[in-house]
Amino acid sequence: MYKELESKDPRLYKNNGILNMLGRNRDVKWGPERWQDWQVGVPRLQHAKDRGSEGTEAGLVDVVITCEERCWDAVIDDLLNRGSPLNRPVHVINVDIKDNHEEAAVGGQGILDLATSLNKAAQEERDAIGASAFDAAGAASRSGFDERVPEILGEWQERWPNLPAVWTLAWF
């Protein structure tokens, strides 16, 4: 998209901020990602499977963060329609961000803070139970983490009161 818009009218798309936003997004992700196209439990990218990666690249996630309530609704609907084939919990969080450069920059910092807090809690739970207590899906580490998410979100919301957020627990 960036190259196409740049070739059409670079001045227009620079002045209205579209090229800046697309340029920023190119640094964040490899390309457009459609949740609906992702098969739970299946690696998104072949090289992730070859490297033995965990997380999204291996087909599993513990948390999904969206930035528009309609996207949050779509993810939840999709998870319900899939019928939770892995019977694995997933926290679905929406941080409502208007799609403009200024609010995206602030929202991005807020989401980074939230992700850092969630990762820290997950690591603390793993450290507390020890690596030997995990099964292949990491199920033993989940209960303590899952119980902490509402508290983490509450503390985060106090730090970021201008970023409205909603959360639900869904299932793969």
Rank of each mutant, 00 (worst) to 15 (best):
residue 32 P to T: 11
residue 126 R to D: 04
residue 43 P to T: 12
residue 114 L to I: 01
residue 47 H to R: 15
residue 26 R to E: 13
residue 36 Q to H: 09
residue 172 F to W: 14
residue 140 A to H: 10
residue 120 K to L: 11
residue 20 N to Y: 09
residue 98 K to Q: 12
residue 85 P to R: 02
residue 74 A to S: 12
residue 131 A to F: 09
residue 67 C to Q: 13
residue 23 G to D: 13
residue 127 D to Q: 08
residue 105 A to T: 14
residue 50 D to L: 15
residue 68 E to N: 06
residue 156 W to F: 04
residue 114 L to K: 01
residue 123 Q to D: 07
residue 142 R to F: 03
residue 12 L to R: 04
residue 77 D to W: 10
residue 58 A to K: 08
residue 93 I to V: 09
residue 34 R to D: 12
residue 54 E to Y: 13
residue 44 R to T: 13
residue 121 A to R: 14
residue 74 A to L: 10
residue 63 V to L: 02
residue 150 P to Q: 05
residue 147 E to H: 12
residue 119 N to T: 12
residue 23 G to C: 12
residue 15 N to M: 10
residue 25 N to F: 12
residue 106 V to T: 06
residue 145 F to V: 07
residue 64 V to I: 11
residue 71 C to H: 11
residue 124 E to P: 04
residue 158 E to I: 15
residue 130 G to M: 03
residue 63 V to T: 01
residue 32 P to H: 09
residue 112 L to Y: 07
residue 71 C to D: 08
residue 37 D to A: 10
residue 132 S to H: 08
residue 35 W to P: 01
residue 94 N to L: 02
residue 158 E to P: 06
residue 122 A to H: 07
residue 61 V to W: 00
residue 115 A to G: 02
residue 150 P to H: 03
residue 71 C to Y: 07
residue 154 G to N: 13
residue 159 R to D: 08
residue 126 R to V: 05
residue 101 H to Y: 12
residue 166 V to H: 04
residue 134 F to M: 04
residue 72 W to S: 05
residue 80 L to H: 11
residue 96 D to Q: 13
residue 69 E to R: 14
residue 90 V to H: 00
residue 38 W to R: 08
residue 132 S to G: 05
residue 78 D to C: 04
residue 72 W to E: 05
residue 60 L to H: 08
residue 64 V to G: 01
residue 75 V to M: 06
residue 28 V to K: 12
residue 34 R to V: 15
residue 139 A to F: 10
residue 27 D to S: 15
residue 14 K to W: 12
residue 93 I to P: 00
residue 140 A to W: 06
residue 134 F to C: 05
residue 68 E to A: 08
residue 121 A to I: 14
residue 14 K to Y: 07
residue 12 L to I: 05
residue 107 G to N: 02
residue 3 K to S: 09
residue 94 N to E: 07
residue 6 E to R: 08
residue 54 E to K: 15
residue 86 L to E: 06
residue 32 P to A: 09
residue 128 A to V: 09
residue 95 V to L: 03
residue 118 L to Y: 00
residue 26 R to Q: 13
residue 85 P to M: 06
residue 128 A to F: 02
residue 158 E to C: 11
residue 64 V to A: 04
residue 149 V to M: 01
residue 19 L to N: 06
residue 65 I to M: 05
residue 171 W to G: 03
residue 88 R to A: 01
residue 135 D to F: 06
residue 24 R to L: 14
residue 71 C to T: 14
residue 94 N to C: 12
residue 109 Q to G: 05
residue 18 I to V: 15
residue 22 L to A: 03
residue 117 S to R: 08
residue 73 D to M: 09
residue 26 R to Y: 11
residue 116 T to W: 03
residue 53 S to Q: 15
residue 51 R to N: 13
residue 79 L to H: 01
residue 144 G to V: 09
residue 37 D to V: 11
residue 90 V to P: 00
